[in-house]
């Protein structure tokens, strides 16, 4: 049996391209992207709107189907519709907690349905447990989304992603629709859960500060391509290689007043 120094990656993406639209109006959103994600790692995908960062998550989960390239999860290639074991390993948290919870379903239904799909038996206990884990007590169990604040909704969405004991979380801008003080609570929760459960994160965001707080390694995306791989340290010192990334870093520091042209 051959031994290798580096453990096999949990997720590997090779030469992934993704298209949207039909034949007449086909648009390439992701262009031959490759990366790997080790178990327990937290990898960031940063870029502006239309850079293709969220599309990669859609391709991994088969929500986008017009793709080429290879995706492996735990060494097994992923092709076509995903199976049960995929869904109990990989889960996603969406950007807008106001759109990602079914308006007519209680928190309980939202959390117990994945368990029922999985064929679990101790549904009641597990729902209670996961609610406790994301910092919502039992009193939230039978509430409807419209009775919850944005932060509470996002906690429910995180609980839904974890209730099947997923190991890899795909986080699509999970805090960009929230207030900063709520953002801090959710980011802390995610960090804690990652530590307690040994989760692996693929974290998509347009916010460099958030992503550098959450991730060890960051891929910068621009126009469907990965233009740079940043280590956490580089971000702190503000030394990026490409001018595009440099621009992003500067922009994240706020506004700098320039003298009026000709004045």
């Amino acid at each position: 049996m051959p031994l290798s120094d580096t453990p096999a990656p949990m997720l590997s993406v090779q030469d992934l391209s993704v298209w949207f639209g039909d034949t007449h109006n086909r648009f390439q959103a992701v262009d031959t992207v490759s990366f790997t994600l080790a178990a327990g790692e937290s990898l960031g995908l940063v870029g502006e709107s239309g850079s293709g960062k969220s599309t990669i998550l859609k391709a991994i989960t088969h929500l986008a189907t017009d793709i080429s390239g290879h995706i492996h999860l735990d060494g097994t290639p992923l092709t076509g519709p995903r199976d049960k074991s995929f869904y109990s390993t990989v889960q996603m948290v969406f950007q807008d907690p106001y759109a990602s919870l079914h308006p007519r379903h209680t928190v309980d239904r939202c959390l117990s349905e994945p368990l029922r799909l999985q064929g679990a038996t101790d549904i009641d206990n597990r729902v209670r447990q996961v609610l406790e884990e994301v910092g919502l007590g039992a009193k939230f169990r039978f509430r409807y989304p419209h009775q919850l604040s944005g932060g509470q909704r996002q906690r429910v969405a995180i609980a839904r992603a974890l209730v099947q004991n997923a190991r890899l979380l795909l986080l699509d801008e999970p805090t960009s629709a929230l207030d900063v003080s709520v953002q801090a609570e959710i980011l802390n929760l995610l960090s804690d859960l990652r530590k307690d459960r040994g989760l692996t994160f693929l974290f998509v965001s347009h916010d460099l500060a958030v992503i550098s707080h959450m991730c060890d390694r960051i891929l910068v995306m621009h126009q469907g391509k990965i233009t740079e791989v940043l280590q956490d340290k580089q971000l702190q010192s503000g030394t990026a290689e490409t001018p595009y990334t440099q621009g992003l870093i500067e922009a994240s520091r706020g506004f700098t007043r320039k003298e009026m042209a000709g004045a």
Partner: peptide, 10 residues
Amino acid sequence: DYIAAIRLQG
């Protein structure tokens, strides 16, 4: 998104 979410639950 909530329809996408339930699809992702299998």
